[in-house]
Amino acid sequence: KKRTSIEVSVKGALESHFLKCPKPSAQEITSLADSLQLEKEVVRVWFCNRRQKEKR
């Protein structure tokens, strides 16, 4: 599967949402994915990776 490159504006939106809620529910992920026109899986993986980055 190809890597999904996420645009800067979209990254900003994800980042601000992450600061409010680092662990969104499935429903939040779905609505966020719909509003940003991304697949749910892409958003879910982005949050997983972002939480891991926070640990480092």
Rank of each mutant, 00 (worst) to 15 (best):
K1P: 03
K1W: 03
K1A: 07
K1S: 06
K1H: 04
K1V: 11
K1G: 07
K2T: 07
K2F: 08
K2I: 07
T4E: 15
T4M: 12
T4K: 06
T4F: 15
T4S: 12
S5N: 13
S5M: 12
S5C: 13
S5K: 15
S5E: 15
S5R: 10
S5D: 08
I6L: 14
I6S: 11
I6F: 04
I6G: 09
I6D: 11
E7A: 11
E7M: 13
E7I: 10
E7Q: 09
V8L: 13
V8R: 14
S9Y: 06
S9H: 14
S9F: 05
V10F: 03
V10E: 11
V10N: 06
V10K: 13
K11R: 09
K11A: 10
K11F: 09
K11E: 13
G12N: 09
G12H: 12
G12L: 15
A13D: 05
A13G: 05
A13W: 05
A13L: 11
L14Y: 03
L14W: 01
L14F: 02
L14R: 02
L14A: 00
L14I: 03
E15D: 03
E15R: 00
E15N: 03
S16N: 06
S16P: 04
S16Y: 05
H17N: 07
F18C: 01
F18A: 01
F18H: 01
F18E: 00
F18D: 01
L19Y: 07
L19Q: 13
L19P: 01
L19T: 08
K20V: 06
K20E: 04
K20P: 00
K20G: 04
K20H: 04
K20S: 07
C21F: 05
C21K: 04
C21R: 05
C21I: 04
P22M: 05
P22Y: 03
P22A: 11
P22I: 03
P22T: 06
K23H: 11
K23D: 14
K23F: 08
K23S: 13
K23G: 05
P24M: 03
P24S: 00
S25D: 09
S25T: 13
S25F: 01
S25Q: 06
S25K: 06
A26L: 08
A26I: 11
A26N: 10
A26W: 10
A26S: 09
A26D: 15
A26T: 12
Q27C: 10
Q27P: 07
Q27Y: 06
E28S: 04
E28T: 10
I29F: 02
I29Q: 02
I29M: 10
I29V: 08
T30Y: 06
T30Q: 14
T30K: 13
S31E: 14
S31R: 14
S31P: 02
S31Y: 13
L32T: 00
L32R: 01
L32M: 10
L32F: 05
L32N: 00
A33Q: 00
L36T: 03
Q37R: 09
Q37L: 07
Q37P: 01
Q37S: 12
Q37I: 03
Q37Y: 05
Q37K: 11
L38F: 02
L38I: 08
L38A: 03
L38V: 09
E39C: 09
E39D: 14
E39P: 07
E39K: 09
E39W: 00
K40G: 10
K40I: 07
K40N: 13
K40S: 12
K40C: 09
V42W: 09
V42Y: 14
V42T: 12
V42E: 13
V42G: 04
V42M: 06
V42N: 06
V42K: 10
V43T: 02
R44T: 10
R44S: 10
R44K: 10
R44A: 12
R44C: 04
R44N: 09
V45W: 11
V45S: 15
V45F: 08
V45C: 06
W46N: 01
W46Q: 02
F47I: 03
F47G: 03
F47H: 03
F47V: 02
C48E: 15
C48I: 12
C48V: 12
N49Y: 05
N49L: 09
N49M: 08
N49V: 10
N49D: 15
N49C: 09
N49R: 09
R50I: 02
R50F: 00
R50K: 08
R50S: 03
R51A: 09
R51K: 04
R51M: 08
Q52D: 13
Q52I: 09
K53E: 03
K53D: 07
E54I: 03
E54P: 02
E54V: 04
K55V: 10
K55H: 06
K55T: 12
K55A: 15
K55D: 13
K55W: 08
R56V: 12
R56Q: 09
R56W: 07
R56I: 04
R56D: 15
